[in-house]
Nucleic acid binder design. Structure first.
Length: 891
RNA sequence: GGACGAAUAGCGCAGCUGGUUCAGAGCAUCUGCCUUACAAGCAGAGGGUCGGGGGUUCGAAUCCCUCUUCGUCCACCA
């Protein structure tokens, strides 16, 4: 049975490749799925700890219900390139995929869906709601992971994790309890950022400031002491006056000095409030009078604390006015703003209104303006964690690419505030705090442990008496453990996996989550593993459209990656992304880049068709041109691969790709293959054929991290491969030493060939030409046989003087001439040579000037001076040759 | 308001500790070619006072100062 299956495979393979060779066009969709299956079936991406060096990458977990967008494509492509490269190098590559429960975003989506079904969240119990949330997660969850396979991502799918799965959840609770025991987590009433739409507190990082075209309202506050007089207060938020409990002036402000010790009446509300003095008030802003609303502004809150003011919370959680406001109860805060403007004007209490632009803090998720609100929340003290996380980055133990983000990182850590970690949500890790009937609480990972602790406080407490805190933890409180929790390092410290895979090698992510995630992972890494979570952080840029705009759903300028993959192939899309994606720079994405990628796939495909299409004859010997070309190609590949490795080390992946692109397209296809191509209809000799296959093999390997599908497909077809063999673990090794002279000589040979081609184009010559050379012997013409073949040269002859009926050009340091048999226009030829001469004389003059400058000769490094002398000699030689030719033509 | 980064060919970019990697590749453009792997291709060519102005130096795209423009992050004066 097994044999039968194998036979089927072989037949299938044969049929496949024979079809393929006939097809002149590369069709990615025919082969990509097949090879991904192949990799999965052979467990190529699966990793287990072994004796090899570990190379670990953890995926920045996308939202569990998200779908692939262009930002992911960039990010995951980079990770896959790094992982595949490491795997080829023989490292034990392990790329762990997974998804994030995205507490607030997912809960919002579930709430929306329920609303569309006429169900309100508030009508459901927590358990019922979570049932819906899990159903939603299962329905949409993991779509994005499937999409990553289309892109070719070589994740170890056996390890797929979820931030809310059992192990990750247990890790979160354990860490929470531990930090509580350490005194780093506390509960308290603080001013927090409140999202009136999501109905939850947010961390400072989740608040984004947006410029808002608003108004500045000037309100009249009559004085109690003299009802005829009033003070004017400028505010952007007139709807908060019901919460005013003081007016504040600067004690050094002469124009408001008359208000000192007085009281004023809040407009419409008619409540008396004192005038207080504080230097916090900016004399220059507005009228210099500030209304103080301690419940609804962070600065006012501080003033309130300092001056022992009353605090009136006039808002409900959803942003409508509460009973405490007394007026406009139940109306939305923005409706009140409009209404109160009218009412104030009617009452004669509105002095004026000015247009005003200010920054409004908005919820990152829901987009609505946040409301500063006093509330009871859980906080994590950051001082200690910031301290342990700062140094490793500043000392480059953890390397940031690009380095400029070190500054951003330092600034944030040095000004860090405590992290509000509780969220008034149900979808997430529920805070493991349990309240006793008397209001005291215990913190423990399980109800059982909590009960024990509770009974230590009060022996009569039963499990039924305990009430668990209803809040959830911030999503990032689980993500920050990701590099550890994926290997279960929290639950079972020191286990085999965490010891082997941690610290991870590279983290690839966007700079927008440097605080949310990167910094916090570093904190958790040192706190729980005593080591960095990763050695290198590669910050990608933002993917923008070609006009430089951020890609967004509302603009409709974001292409669907899967559609792009359908049209250009995964390799084409990956290429397109990487061609212009240096670390840290935004990339302006344009579909034409994918086109370029697809065209490159086509180029590789056709080169393969050429080489594999040759009839091979063992009895034929390699020609000189072929031997010379092979010698050069070997040196060129070596040279490029050395450089590519260097670029990989510097995470300059787009430059590495560009080099390989040029190596394959220009050097290998345009120069090498043309040089070794047998005459039409003639067979290729075995030596050249085998060597070319070998080069092809290396080129495919080196391109594989960037273009995994086509390289696997062609590598499989290049030679007979055994079932289970894969390019995925084949290193692109360079076996030669660098041969600078060979490379330099070939560049001269290219110049000669290009020179001849130019003459052909200008004179419209199709036949073979005769070439003469001065200055060097015929045998010293670099890569002479290649020059003859690619230049279409009948014969090269050494001459002392250029023939009259010839047109010449310079290559290297000597002059070459194509004999033209009377086709030459002497005047034109002389003019051309004179132009060249003029340029060279100018060049020589500048070199001479330099060398004539004593201070240059004295101060410059000797090798620089030597170089100038060489330039001088070369130029003089060329000038002499040109002059001789001109003189001869002018006879 | 503060900090950081950027400005080089039509476009998006590279150019490291000043001097042969020094003014560069790629795409686009233009001119020839349906040449037998590839027209999604081949062979050529033309594009730039390196944002402006100063300075240091024998020598500056590169170092310093300054101005202009753009970007990012942080702060949030109500």
């Amino acid at each position: 049975m097994q044999n039968f299956c194998e036979l089927c495979m072989i037949i299938q393979k044969l049929r496949f490749f024979s079809n393929m060779e006939l097809s002149s066009k590369y069709n990615p969709s025919e082969i990509e799925g097949k090879w991904y299956e192949y990799w999965l079936n052979h467990g190529i991406f699966h990793s287990e700890p072994d004796g090899r060096e570990a190379y670990t990458v953890v995926i920045p977990p996308p939202n569990v219900t998200g779908v692939l967008h262009m930002g992911h494509v960039l990010n995951e492509t980079i990770q896959d390139i790094l992982v595949r490269h490491a795997r080829q190098q023989g490292k034990n590559a392990c790329w762990v995929p997974g998804t994030d429960h995205a507490s607030i975003a997912t809960e919002a989506k579930v709430v929306n869906r329920l609303a569309s079904q006429g169900i309100k969240k508030t009508d459901l119990t927590r358990e019922e709601f979570l049932k819906h949330a899990w159903a939603w997660t299962e329905e949409h969850g993991g779509i994005i992971l499937k999409q990553l396979r289309r892109l070719g991502c070589s994740c170890d799918w056996d390890r797929t994790a979820f931030t809310m799965d059992e192990k990750r959840s247990a890790s979160v609770l354990k860490v929470f309890c531990d930090l509580y025991e350490k005194g780093l987590i506390y509960r308290g009433v603080r001013m927090v950022n409140w999202d009136p739409k999501a109905l939850t507190a947010l961390s400072d990082e989740e608040v984004i400031f947006k410029e808002h075209q608003g108004k500045l309202y000037y309100l009249r506050y009559r004085t109690v002491e003299d009802p005829e007089k009033y003070a004017v207060v400028a505010t952007t938020r007139p709807e908060t006056i019901m919460g005013d409990t003081a007016m504040c002036i600067n004690p050094n402000d002469p124009k408001n000095a008359w208000l000192k010790g007085k009281h004023v009446i809040v407009p419409l509300v008619n409540r008396q409030i004192p005038v207080i003095e504080d230097e916090y008030v900016d004399v220059e802003f507005g009228t210099g009078c500030l209304k103080v609303t301690p419940a609804h502004d962070i600065n006012d809150y501080m003033l309130g604390e300092k001056h022992h003011l009353q605090s009136i919370d006039i808002f409900n959680d959803n942003g409508t006015l509460s009973e405490a406001a007394g007026l406009y109860v139940g109306m939305d805060r923005f409706d009140v703003r409009e209404q109160i403007e009218k009412d104030l004007a009617e009452a004669g209490l509105l002095e004026k209104v000015e247009a005003y632009t200010n920054n409004v803090g908005c919820s990152e998720r829901t987009g609505v303006p946040i409301e500063p609100k006093l509330s009871m929340q859980w906080f994590l003290k950051m001082e200690h964690l910031a301290q342990i996380a700062l140094e490793p980055v500043m000392k480059d133990e953890i390397m940031f690419y690009p380095q400029k983000y070190k500054n951003t990182y330092r600034h944030w850590l040095e000004n860090i505030k405590d992290w509000c970690i509780s969220r008034q949500l149900w979808w997430g890790h529920r805070i493991p705090a349990y309240y006793l009937p008397d209001g005291r609480f215990v913190v423990a990972p399980t109800v059982e442990d909590a009960l024990k602790k509770a009974q230590a406080i009060n022996p009569s407490v039963t499990a039924a008496d305990l009430r668990q805190d209803p809040d959830c933890l911030d999503t990032w409180f689980s993500s920050w453990l990701w590099p550890i929790s994926l290997f279960d390092g929290i639950n079972t410290p020191g286990n085999k996996e965490i010891s082997y895979y941690y610290p991870t090698a590279d983290l690839v992510t966007g700079p927008d989550i440097i605080f949310f995630w990167v910094a916090r992972m570093i904190m958790a890494g040192y706190e729980y593993e005593g080591k960095m979570p990763f050695k290198h952080v590669y910050f990608t840029g933002i993917v923008r459209d070609k006009l430089g705009r951020k890609m967004s759903k509302s603009l409709g300028n974001s292409p669907d990656p899967l559609d792009l993959i359908d049209r250009y192939g995964a390799d084409g899309v990956r290429m397109g992304m990487m061609l212009s994606a240096p670390a840290g720079n935004d990339i302006l994405f344009d579909e034409s880049l994918c086109e370029q990628g697809r065209n490159f796939s086509g180029k590789i495909w056709n080169a393969f068709r050429l080489v594999k299409g040759w009839q091979v004859d063992d009895s034929v010997k390699a020609t000189d041109a072929q031997r010379q070309a092979m010698k050069w190609m070997s040196a060129k590949i070596t040279d490029t691969l050395v450089e590519v490795e260097d670029l990989f080390g510097k995470y300059r992946l787009s430059e590495a790709l560009t080099l390989l692109y040029k190596l394959f397209w220009d050097e290998f296809s345009s120069w090498y293959l043309e040089a070794i191509k047998p005459e039409y209809g003639k067979p290729q000799n075995a030596e050249t054929y085998r060597t070319t296959l070998h080069y092809f093999d290396i080129l495919l390997r080196s391109l594989h991290p960037f273009m995994p599908f086509i390289t696997e497909h062609l590598w499989q077809a290049l030679e007979d491969r055994k079932e289970g063999e894969t390019i995925c673990n084949q290193e692109a090794k360079c076996e030669n030493q660098e041969q600078k002279a060979v490379l330099d000589d070939f560049e001269i040979a290219k110049q000669i060939i290009t020179g001849i081609r130019n003459v052909r184009a200008q004179k419209n010559i199709g036949n073979k030409v005769d070439l003469t050379v001065q200055a060097v012997n015929v045998s010293d013409v670099p890569f002479r046989a290649v020059v003859e073949k690619l230049g279409g040269v009948k014969e090269i002859e050494h001459v002392a003087e250029k023939a009259a009926s010839a047109t010449s050009f310079l290559a290297g340091n000597s002059e070459y001439a194509v004999l033209l048999d009377g086709l030459v226009d002497t005047a034109e030829e002389v003019a051309k040579l004179k132009k060249e001469l003029e340029y060279l004389e100018g060049f020589l003059a500048s070199v001479n000037k330099k060398l004539g400058n004593e201070r240059f000769v004295q101060n410059a490094k000797p090798e620089i001076v030597a170089n100038e002398r060489k330039k001088q000699a070369d130029a003089e030689q060329k000038i002499a040759a040109l002059k001789a030719s001109i003189e001869q033509l002018s006879k």
